[in-house]
Structure formats: C-alpha cells, structure tokens
C-alpha cells in the first residue's frame, strides 16, 4: 500500500517520530519519583494511573503536524484525487501515526509502569491496554488535528478538542490495570476500552474527511 508507506515515512520524520514520544515518556517516568518522593509503596499505588496519563500526553505531541503540512503544501488536494476516498486516506494517516508513536509507546508503557512499581505480572495487560488506548488516541487526535486545520493556533485548539475525548480511554485503561493488580475483575473496563478504541477508529475518519474537505474548499 503506497499511501501507508508514505504516511509511515512522514510520521517517522514528524518531529522526531517515535523518539520524541518515547523520550517524553521516559523523561516523565524518571521525573515522577523525583517529585512524588521515593517511597515504593506510594509510587506503586500511582504507577498504573501515572503511566496512563503520561501515555496520553506523549501521544498528543506530534498531532498538530498530522494534517497541517499536507494542507499547506497542497498534498491534500492530490490525496483527494487519488483512488481512495478521503475517509480511507484519513484512516491510513491515523494508522501510520499509531504504528509510529502508539506501538513503540505500548512497548515502553509496561517498562515505565513496572519501573514505577507496578507488578511485573501486569506487563501484558498494560501493553495491550496501551496499544488499544494508543489506537484511540491516534484516531481522536487525528480528528482534532483535522478540525483545527486552517485555524491559527491550531495546536491549542487540538488540545482543547481532544483532551475531553481522551478521558474515557484513560479511565477505562487505568481501571483495567488497577483492577488486574488488585485481583479484581478487569475484563469489563478492558472491553470498554477496546469498544471505545474501535468506535473511534470507525467513526472519526468521517469527521476527518469532512473537516479536510471543508478546510480545502
């Protein structure tokens, strides 16, 4: 798929690509104990939740460059004249964003959470939840980025649009990991997280395509 290859290359180059998100995540994980104090018991209690918030914030970093460059240099026009409808183009863009930033973050999330004191047994579920959450973050972030096209200070607008939408996956994912660690049923919040991510992936491409068409005309 020629479009996916291009989008991966662009996402990779966008603001340092995966390194930026990973670097931000790693730096934040290192800073957290410094500000909260080093008692392992206290850190372990916040580990899962903190890792989740950091994950959501790290995935916001390069969002404003998802559609903006294509819009400014006319590539969006070219993409509209290709064989796929803009909805599919938008979905591929988000998929590339997820593969380049979400997937590395999903691998880093368990390491970060365990470093903060989460149980090592929770690593698989943390990675799975982070991967699903990253999917939701990429698509919702893409919708925010598309809606902010053609407006000045788009970055601020993206944050304002996207943050409320990111709240549910953060809640579901944090609950799933927390419940798992405390021996409580975790499947329900995990399923809700999966449902939310898939709904975002299914619905936001229409919003993105509409926003792009609107900005281009």
């Amino acid at each position: 798929m020629v479009l996916l290859r291009r989008e991966l290359a662009l996402a990779w180059a966008r603001g340092g690509g995966p390194l930026l998100a990973l670097g931000f995540f790693a730096a934040a994980v290192v800073m957290l104990p410094l500000s909260l104090g080093p008692e392992p018991a206290r850190l372990a209690r916040v580990a899962a939740g903190a890792a989740w918030v950091l994950l959501a914030l790290a995935s916001l970093l390069s969002l404003d460059r998802m559609f903006e460059p294509d819009f400014e240099d006319g590539a969006l026009d070219l993409l509209s004249l290709g064989p796929l409808p803009l909805e599919a183009v938008a979905a591929v863009k988000c998929l590339a964003q997820w593969l380049v930033t979400g997937a590395p973050l999903a691998l880093a999330a368990p390491i970060g959470a365990i470093a903060l004191g989460a149980k090592p047994a929770a690593a698989p579920i943390i990675a799975a939840a982070a991967a699903l959450g990253g999917l939701a973050f990429a698509f919702l972030g893409g919708a925010g980025a598309a809606l902010a096209l053609a407006s000045r200070r788009g970055g601020l607008l993206i944050a304002v649009i996207v943050l409320p939408l990111l709240t549910p996956p953060v809640i579901f994912g944090g609950a799933a990991i927390d419940n798992f660690q405390n021996g409580l049923p975790w499947l329900t919040p995990f399923s809700l997280l999966a449902a939310y991510a898939l709904a975002a992936a299914a619905l936001t491409p229409f919003a993105m395509a509409g926003a792009c068409r609107n900005a281009a005309s």
């Binding site: 020629v2 479009l3 290859r5 291009r6 290359a9 662009l10 180059a13 460059p69 294509d70 400014e72 240099d73 006319g74 590539a75 969006l76 026009d77 070219l78 993409l79 004249l81 290709g82 064989p83």
Partner: peptide, 23 residues
C-alpha cells in the same frame, strides 16, 4: 497548481514515485 504537494524534506524521486503511484 501553485501548490505541488511535494514534501521539502523528502527526496524528489520518492515524492515523484508516490505521486505517480497514487494517481
């Protein structure tokens, strides 16, 4: 048009190839 959609940071050949395959 005036805006050619070519990405400044990418190699000319890669951009041409994408645009051609895409169309």
């Amino acid at each position: 048009g005036h805006q050619d959609g070519l990405k400044g940071a990418r190699a000319a050949g890669a951009e041409l190839e994408f645009q051609v395959l895409w169309t």
